[in-house]
Design a protein around this nucleic acid. Structure first.
Lengths: 340, 340
DNA sequence: TATGACTGTCGAACCGGTTCGAAACGTGTC
DNA sequence: GACACGTTTCGAACCGGTTCGACAGTCATA
């Protein structure tokens, strides 16, 4: 494999000159620059990443921590990963991926050994145990998900409170007076998935303010449990005319459940979910939904992270906490309730 | 950040001694070893990955190339990725992930700059344009998916021919005489997704050998197109009693389609798919299926790759081409056809 | 014709590890 | 007491880049 020494020899210059010719950090005569570039082509030279990282303390790699936990719906996570990965590449960075359940280990390994210039954390819990480690690390970090304490990191998340309100308002406006909300499994909440509460509390509050009934419940993350949960909920609240879904597995299971009950949306039941458009297409979901914008969130996180890595953000520039406003995508699954 | 020089100073030894004490590659007195280990703990020392890579020419990183192409079903790919990632971690390797559509670029970048010790290629096409690059690279490569030319790499794939035969045999044995097979989009085939043909040809041949009818067709990769495709197929072949599905999007869309047609499996139609058990759970699919074993294939690929990286495979040990035998998971969606 | 400024190039040092050869030391043998 | 030997440690070189300071050459200016 060719080194910069080989390039220099072929071009008839010193190693430092070759380096400067390639980086452009000092003025080099056009003649020499041309000879160096020819040598690079001739030898097929590519700089050794390890050596460059050692010399510059920059790797041009971003660490991506995605935990695939029990009771979590894997395909939803994929969309965030792709948003992060694709944006990173556009900005000239590669992705070091960890799917370890124990994210602390992975985080320490990546940061301590200087394998990465920065870190993106997905699926952040309210008291995420990876955060103290990330704050102590020399690399900057960006989160997708809102923790209790945002100091020292940039934070991006959907505005789940607004999402909860929007769902309720939308159905209230159509005339619905009794709703059911299916959230993520209780387990996810216990693990600190605060976004579940944020949406739910706002929905409950919005319903109370409008004097309508909202039954909130958890749903499992897999079949067949989540199907049973949905049946049980619909059995328990036969007068409910609207269904809110903040649970990807439940959304994916709903077509079959409605089929079994011989119900259609919106004729028999109005349905609003919270998932991305890409998710809806993939899972063949015909229900209107609050766009969860995983690609956009991933993109924002990486953009800001790279700004910090490259020092375009001032060293004392305060960290961001930014919420994406929910947008309701109408797929025609809501209507006025049947007047019976 | 502490370096091995700091460790050596605190322990009162030379850098080389500290290095040997940690690697164990030369005998070191227990006293010195203890002092070095204490210093490591005291300083929180972790070796710098770039420096180590430069010195040893080993990165302990595996490159993972996953292309998310148009007309491909993303969640199916995720399972292969997780199989690879988790196995790599178990063996002490990290994953450098590329999701670029142009895999050649990513591959060249990773291999030329020595960022990785080895490469895993997912979703390999018959004449995959990444293969020539991989063969020229100094790092070993493992594929999931069968190309026309397997020289120089280890190859792992499901036995799609056996899968096609098994599906047909299973329904023939139950008494079905007219079947429909829905394959991946034609576009996937044109791009070189030979596994589609392998399954389809074997199915056609198996049907011919048994004197039964098989209508083979392509299906789209997304809603609502794939739903339309399924409807059209069932309309076109009203006497078919069995449905074979080699298309994840079609499988995911089938519950809704059957609902719309007021059909149930297996009462009105026997259904056999080709997807993993994890996929079935995630997508709430109640149909029997040929297990596509993505985790197992990913695991096998990484295992063999690491064996080569670490030189446990002899330098001239021939490369593997290994097929996983299909296993039919019975979820009760097949039965004898209705005798009407 | 010396002076200073500017351009283009080079040599050496450095980043933080690993590894080879040799040195220092204690031990046992003749 | 000279010698060989095994154990433990050290110094130096090396991996392949980047970067700083110095220096030679050119040109305009005083």
């Amino acid at each position: 494999m060719a080194t910069i020494g080989d390039v220099a020899r072929v071009a008839g210059v010193s190693r430092s000159t070759a380096s400067y010719a390639l980086s452009g950090k000092r003025t080099i005569s056009v003649d020499v620059r041309r000879r160096v570039e020819d040598a690079v082509r001739e030898l097929g030279y590519t700089p050794n990443a390890g050596a460059r990282a050692l010399a510059t303390s920059q790797t041009r790699v971003i660490g991506l921590l995605a935990q695939f936990l029990e009771d979590e719906f894997a395909p939803a996570m994929l969309q965030y990963m792709l948003g992060v990965s694709n944006t990173a590449r556009e900005l000239g960075y590669d992705i070091l991926l960890s799917t370890e359940a124990d994210g602390r280990n992975a985080l320490r390994r990546m940061t301590d050994s200087r394998m990465v210039d920065g870190i993106v954390l997905l699926n952040v819990a309210e008291h995420d145990d990876r955060l103290p480690i990330l704050r102590d690390a020399p690399q900057p970090g960006a989160l997708v998900g809102l923790p209790a304490d945002c100091t020292g990191v940039d934070v991006f998340d959907l505005d789940f409170e607004d999402a909860g309100r929007t769902m309720v308002e939308h159905l209230h406006r159509l005339g619905h007076r009794e709703l059911v909300l299916v959230s993520q499994p209780e387990h996810v909440v216990e693990r600190g998935g605060a976004y579940v509460w944020r949406l739910q509390n706002a929905a409950v509050e919005a319903a109370r303010a409008r004097g309508i009934t909202l039954h909130a419940a958890f749903g499992a993350a897999h079949q067949p449990d989540v199907g049973r949960d949905l049946h049980a909920l619909l059995d328990a609240h036969p007068r409910a005319t609207g269904l809110l879904i903040n649970n990807e597995a439940a959304a994916a299971a709903l077509p079959t459940v409605l089929h079994d009950r011989k119900l259609s949306a919106p004729a028999d039941l109005s349905v609003v979910g919270r998932y991305s458009d890409e998710f809806a297409r993939t899972f063949s979901l015909p229900y209107s939904s609050i766009e969860s914008a995983p690609d956009r969130l991933g993109r924002m996180a990486v953009r800001e992270l790279v700004r910090r890595i490259e020092g375009q953000a001032g060293p004392d520039e305060p960290h961001l906490v930014r919420f994406v406003s929910p947008e309701l995508i109408d797929r025609g699954s809501t209507a006025a309730p049947r007047g019976d």
